[in-house]
Structures are given as structure tokens and as C-alpha cells.
Amino acid sequence: MQSPKIECQIKALHMKQMFSIIMWVLVVMPTCLSQESTDIADLFKIKCAICHTIGGGKLIGPDLSGVDQRHSRDWLVEFVRSSQKMINRGDPAAVALFEANNKIQMPDPMISDDQIQSILDHIEAQSGQAASGSEYVSILEGASPENRESGRRLFEGLHSFSNGGPSCLSCHNDISTYFFSENSYSNKDIRTSFSTLGEAGIKAILESPPFPVMRKAFEGRPLQEAEIHDLLVFLRDSGSANAHANPSSGYLLYGLGGTVLLLFLIAGLWIERKRTSVNHKIYKRQIRSAN
């Protein structure tokens, strides 16, 4: 029979082997795979194509065709790695881009610098060729008020999404009832989103959300085509209707009115309170005579 000590050592050996195998799977394998150039086009599709085209015109972000002529390679790598850092740092070119694209921040793609390089190579190679996408054709032709209503119900969570994704209202302003919207738990005010991003942009976001939190929320429970359609109708109609309503003015007024009312109530409720110290007069006189 083995002594317990030896048994322990054997176990430790197994553990070490297991560990290196896991490490290999986790670290080495993906690097090998990513080096396969055929996968770069797929990577571009997953990470970039939601917002960008190469020669197909602007979606959410700018058309990337010829981007290597507009910026240096080093700058591009750094920007792709984390555009937010550059913007925060005040890099003029990065800030200009941010401003030019409706102040929508590009999410960090979470890929290695080597992968970024290969994607940039891929863009450079594609740039000369013909447009990778064709002209966007609107799908909202002939939408009815019913579609709009169904979009609203989906937005507000009155109807669940068929695949179980969270309703829009969980994170975004209710754009049809804007009254207290300044105060809601909103992530991004999307009242003007339709007009700034356009149908194509929003559709792309809804089909495959690029923002980390949103992507996580809809992971494995994508929106159905009909749902996207209705949501788009709703966003188009109500967004344009309320885009310029100013939610804070009403809120402020009500707040001020409420405060005044409360103050009166408090003053009335404690009208008989003891206002000063009983020694107040004595102190006042003493201080006066001391001066």
C-alpha cells in the first residue's frame, strides 16, 4: 500500500500537468488560431463590421476605406486598443473623431495588438477593392401604427422579447413619457438616436450590440427581426416627436413648488416651537455690554 505521503506527491504531479494543459488551451491555442489569416475577415466581421464598412459608406462609425492614409499605423493601433483613453487624454485627432461621430464611443475590442495589426492589414488590402457593402435599403416602408404600438410595448417591457432579452427601459430613457426622464436610471439618452445614427446604424446595433454591457445583456437571446422592425418604427416616430422637449424645466418647477409647499408645512406644523434659548436675551445684552 502506498503511504499517504507518496499519494500526495502523485496528486501534486497530476495537478501540475493539468495546470499546464489548461494554460496551453487558454493561452497558446487562441494565439495560434488567430494567426490563421483566413480568420481575420471573420474577426473583422465580429468586431468591426457592425459599425464600420470598408468603402460601403458610414454606418455608426466612419467608413474605414483608406484609414491608413488618414492616420499613422501606431496611432491607429493605440486608438483601436482603447479610444476612450486617447479621448480622455485629449489627443486632438481622437477627440475630433469622437465629436464627428455623434459622440458615440467606440468600445474596446479586447483583442491583442497583433490582431489589431492584422485587421489593419486587412483593411489596407480591402481598401483598394470595390465597396464591401451595398447601399442600405430601408425596411420601414409601409409600417403601420400597430407596429409603432408594438414597438412601444417592447421598449417599455410591457411585452417581453421572445428570446428573453431585457426590455430597453431597463437601461434607457422612456422616450414617449419624458417627464421625469432626467431622473431615471438611464444609461444613454436615446431620444435623438434615430436622427443621429439613422435607421441603418440602429438596426446594426440591435442586431448585434457592440456596447459591452448591451452585448452581454443580449448574449444568447438575440432580437427577432419583427421585433427590431417594430422597435425601429417606435424609435423613429416618438424620438422625433420628443427630441426637443426639455424634460428638466418641468421637473425643476415641480421641485421648487414642492419645496416651498414643504417649507410652509413645516413652518405651520411647528409654529409653536421653542425658537430661541431662554437665555438668549441675557446673552445678547451681555455681549452688547462687553463690546
Partner: peptide, 8 residues
């Protein structure tokens, strides 16, 4: 409202 204060 009728609590004495330290100056009392």
C-alpha cells in the same frame, strides 16, 4: 420642537 438647547 420644545427640546432644550445647550444654551438653556
Amino acid at each position: 420642537p420644545h427640546l432644550p438647547v445647550i444654551d438653556d
